[in-house]
Amino acid sequence: MELTPVKLEVNAIVGRKSHQCDILFRIIDILESGGVRTAILYGEDYRLVADAPIDDLELIDPREYKRRTKEFRSMEQQSLELFRQDIDLQKQKQEYSSTNAYREEYNYFHVPGKVLHLDGDQSYLQKCLDLYEKIGVPVTGVHCNEKEMPEKIGPLIEKYRPDILVITGHDAYTKSKGKKSDINAYRHSRFFVNTVKEARRRVPHLDQLVIFAGACQSHFESLIHAGANFASSPLRVNIHALDPVYIVAKISFTAFTEPVNVWDILRNTLTGDKGLGGIETRGVLRTGMPYKPVEDE
């Protein structure tokens, strides 16, 4: 009895047989040329875009998908708990400073930095917005195709006046297109670079607008030279979908009078310093007083 072949369609969760199904992908599109069908793939948990012949793809069993997703959610929860501990410690330091070492009572309030998050993936953007909300970071999210980001970033900065800008989506390095030093060998890095340059034309100072830029395997050096404070990916590895949130949230909750050590930012991310890096940057949190809730008469 012959088995009916599985039909792979858009939105199916698959793995690449040639890579031992190491990363879970969702099929975004299927193209056909010369009788060969090729699938465009977006990573489920990594900000990676790839393409593969349909024959190289294997449909992931729902039980396997559930198991692997559970592992990732556990990693995300651990990272979130570590981050919350970090923020609690930061708040204690600020309280100590605001109350003159607890010798005086002040009613004060905090104004964390506002984030503008541009994302080439609507699904990832929503995941990030949910995490921003859990942490308490004020954010505006905009879904935007990576190729359109350079022309759209200027008006968005003028409209939202963010303290922190995130420019991310999907990316990938293709060895057949050139060396790792050649930015043309990357799917979207040049668009991220041009977006950073355009943002820096509007706000040149590194501490007046803090920028994170990049995705999986992005051209790290070009992004930093273009004016990003933080970027991916130093060793051209894949980065987790939520890593940009942990980086900018740390900056959002650090006082503007304090520099943020790069390692302090990277240590609670899911990818670490192989996939993320940056330069020393000041926080953007500001403390005000007095805090007196207005009562309705």
Rank of each mutant, 00 (worst) to 15 (best):
residue 65 Y to A: 07
residue 83 F to N: 01
residue 259 P to S: 03
residue 286 R to W: 08
residue 9 E to N: 07
residue 261 N to P: 01
residue 271 T to F: 05
residue 198 E to W: 00
residue 104 E to I: 11
residue 160 Y to E: 06
residue 181 S to C: 02
residue 289 M to Q: 15
residue 279 I to Y: 00
residue 199 A to L: 07
residue 125 L to A: 04
residue 179 K to S: 14
residue 4 T to R: 15
residue 211 I to K: 06
residue 26 R to E: 04
residue 232 S to A: 11
residue 182 D to E: 14
residue 32 E to M: 07
residue 118 L to C: 05
residue 51 D to N: 12
residue 289 M to C: 07
residue 135 I to P: 03
residue 184 N to V: 01
residue 161 R to S: 13
residue 96 Y to E: 11
residue 291 Y to V: 10
residue 113 G to L: 13
residue 241 A to R: 01
residue 243 D to C: 10
residue 223 L to R: 04
residue 260 V to F: 00
residue 91 K to T: 04
residue 167 I to N: 03
residue 257 T to P: 02
residue 203 V to F: 09
residue 190 R to T: 06
residue 73 R to S: 01
residue 150 P to E: 03
residue 128 C to M: 06
residue 244 P to E: 05
residue 70 K to G: 09
residue 49 V to T: 09
residue 162 P to W: 09
residue 242 L to Y: 02
residue 93 K to G: 09
residue 138 P to Y: 01
residue 267 R to T: 14
residue 146 E to G: 10
residue 187 R to F: 10
residue 179 K to V: 00
residue 117 H to L: 08
residue 295 E to G: 07
residue 220 F to E: 00
residue 255 A to L: 12
residue 101 A to H: 12
residue 104 E to A: 12
residue 297 E to I: 10
residue 242 L to R: 09
residue 11 N to F: 01
residue 140 T to G: 01
residue 112 P to E: 04
residue 286 R to C: 07
residue 203 V to G: 07
residue 67 R to F: 05
residue 208 Q to L: 13
residue 269 T to V: 00
residue 243 D to H: 10
residue 202 R to T: 12
residue 81 E to I: 10
residue 121 D to T: 10
